[in-house]
Amino acid sequence: MAQAEPKPSPNRSPLGELCSALPSLPMRLQEVGRFVAANDYDATTRSMRELAAVAGADPAAFTRLAKAIGYSGWDELRAALTEARRPTQASPFSARTKGRRAGPNADVTLINEKLEAEAAGLGRISSTAIADAARVLHSADRIWIAGFRSCRSVAELLNYQLRLFRPDAVQLVGGAGPDDLDHGAFRAGDAVVVIGFAPYSTASVLSARAAHHARATLIAIADTISAPMAEGADHLLLYEAATSPGFFPSLTGAIAIAQSLAAVTFTLGGAAAKRKLEQTEDRLAEMSQYFAEKG
């Protein structure tokens, strides 16, 4: 009679299950398991083939690893890792304060840890994915940008920068009226950029679904591939929100992606974009929008 595979415990984290099982695994699976444990964010955001290439392993080893610790396959283990990283709906921010060290230098330590985590997260953003998405923005008939609650600041930044050289083609979803009226204006040929992180705003999910319904191109700037506002996205631009310490998830990566999108889209626009930018600058100067010291 075949021995039943172990079942993951509902009371333990998937990383805990993995680390506990490592000593009993074959050597090659131990190596893959240690890689996953040390790179759990990448494990939730990158494909199995990409992980295997970085780890120097056979993609099938990730499936064998998942089955060895009681999961049906890599997809189920990755889903469990993703869920473990997601804050609870009831306390998405205050839950992040648990376990923080106290002491005379705790404030400086927190700042150093946060800066290090932000820098590491920026280094894992895919420049190729951003360049591909920027080409979509360059060729789109219209660009809609959806960001709500804390992500509104990122959406407004991207909207502002793009409007400097494409003033007639860029609009903030909900910027001039109810969100649903803008949803009804989405069309094929448009690009819709939706920005979010856990816990995800209902408005961002509805914006993404409206983009699908209109057959517009959806670009999701999200913290994980399982984000509901990123489901079925044509372009997924991932950033790290949860790994940075502090009571609130980090928007540093989302801001960097937004600014990179604007920079590359402007470059793709060539001479026409430059002329539009110069016209905008002239208008701003005429209106004295920037303070100048009088000599």
Rank of each mutant, 00 (worst) to 15 (best):
48 M>A: 10
285 A>E: 14
64 R>M: 12
228 P>K: 03
204 S>W: 03
184 G>W: 07
182 D>I: 02
111 I>R: 14
163 R>Q: 14
266 F>E: 12
236 L>P: 05
203 A>T: 10
71 Y>V: 07
213 H>K: 13
68 A>E: 04
163 R>L: 02
106 A>W: 03
137 L>I: 06
238 L>N: 02
164 L>Y: 00
87 P>D: 09
23 P>S: 09
25 L>M: 12
23 P>T: 02
70 G>E: 05
175 G>M: 11
10 P>H: 07
160 Y>T: 14
232 G>V: 01
92 P>D: 10
142 R>I: 02
44 T>I: 04
105 N>E: 14
60 A>K: 12
267 T>F: 07
61 A>W: 06
210 A>C: 10
8 P>V: 06
61 A>T: 02
112 N>W: 00
210 A>D: 09
12 R>K: 12
38 A>I: 00
246 G>E: 08
16 G>W: 05
166 R>M: 15
209 R>S: 12
203 A>P: 00
91 S>A: 15
267 T>M: 10
119 A>N: 09
151 C>R: 11
156 E>M: 13
109 T>V: 10
164 L>V: 02
270 G>Y: 04
220 A>W: 03
211 A>E: 07
35 F>Q: 06
15 L>T: 04
294 K>R: 12
261 L>S: 07
6 P>C: 08
188 A>L: 03
52 A>H: 06
294 K>E: 14
129 A>I: 01
109 T>Y: 00
117 A>H: 02
50 E>C: 05
92 P>W: 07
229 M>I: 01
172 L>T: 02
158 L>T: 04
277 L>M: 13
138 H>G: 02
98 K>I: 10
35 F>D: 09
278 E>R: 13
221 I>V: 15
268 L>C: 06
211 A>R: 06
36 V>Y: 05
122 L>A: 05
33 G>V: 07
189 G>K: 05
205 V>C: 10
265 T>M: 06
171 Q>Y: 06
77 L>G: 09
64 R>G: 00
7 K>R: 15
67 K>E: 13
259 Q>L: 09
169 A>M: 04
185 A>S: 13
195 I>E: 07
56 G>L: 09
221 I>A: 04
172 L>V: 01
151 C>I: 00
